[in-house]
Design a protein around this nucleic acid. Sequence first.
DNA 1: GCTTGACCTCAAGTCGACTTTAACTGGCAG
DNA 2: CTGCCAGTTAAAGTCGACTTGAGGTCAAGC
Lengths: 142, 142
Amino acid sequence: MKELDIGKVARWSGLPASTLRYYEEKGLIHSIGRNGLKRVFAESVLQRLSLIALGRTAGFSLDAIAEMLAAEGGPAIDREQLERKAEQLDHTIRRLSAIRDGLRHAALCPADNHLSCPTFQRLMSMASKQMGRKRSAAPERA
Amino acid sequence: MKELDIGKVARWSGLPASTLRYYEEKGLIHSIGRNGLKRVFAESVLQRLSLIALGRTAGFSLDAIAEMLAAEGGPAIDREQLERKAEQLDHTIRRLSAIRDGLRHAALCPADNHLSCPTFQRLMSMASKQMGRKRSAAPERA
DNA sequence: GCTTGACCTCAAGTCGACTTTAACTGGCAG
DNA sequence: CTGCCAGTTAAAGTCGACTTGAGGTCAAGC
């Protein structure tokens, strides 16, 4: 099993060492031991970091990601929760798609005020569909 | 032209008044005047707030949104920039889609460790494709 | 005339996610 | 032995996006 010091992990993951320490402190990753003072990581930490980066991209908080990663190894994954998150993501994707189309349209449409362009408006209203954002979606700190 | 006080804007937009004041301070919205001390908003501020919410969903910072909104009314929209943003969003969407599929697969797949499941791995590697930190899109942030 | 409620300002506080700083350790090169 | 380099810690600082708090204004209602 290949062992990496923090510098290698940093270089390969693209994350600064400080972030790796921070993630370890938060329990998102674990070092497999020490060599003197120095942390030693298993190669597999890179995959875990990928998953974390992915989760961040998807908009999850570090805490939410920690939960999911914990569930992942654990005795029972909450399949229902995963499906809920998948569905949430699905909504997000649809909204982002509408926004993307909106931007693209804005880049082409000659109307000088997009707010009054019907195509733009249609896309935006498609994207909106509920705009009071209170904590309700991603983490469900349960 | 209908005029709204901050309370109505708050109720209709779902945002607290403090946020509306903050947005005004940042130049994202404007009140059309004052009634005594009290801000008076045009009804159109609601649409603007929708766009702002949309932008937030798409992962843009308030500053970036302010820029885009400024460009919107201005003399020339940077079409190239819009197209770039659209393309960025497109990548994000693809990655989110892979993540969604990954989650959904994880919810169904009987393997007890998804990290070793080839289907899961394929989806995740599809989602990754570059993992340097750079925030992009968030679902209803938690 | 006094209270209540919705609004105001300005300053300070909070939260998440890091980054920076200062002081220290331990290995290896010259 | 001396320096340097990569690593270590704990604590403080930063940044974006708000929220909260203290203290004030004003119209309406009892």
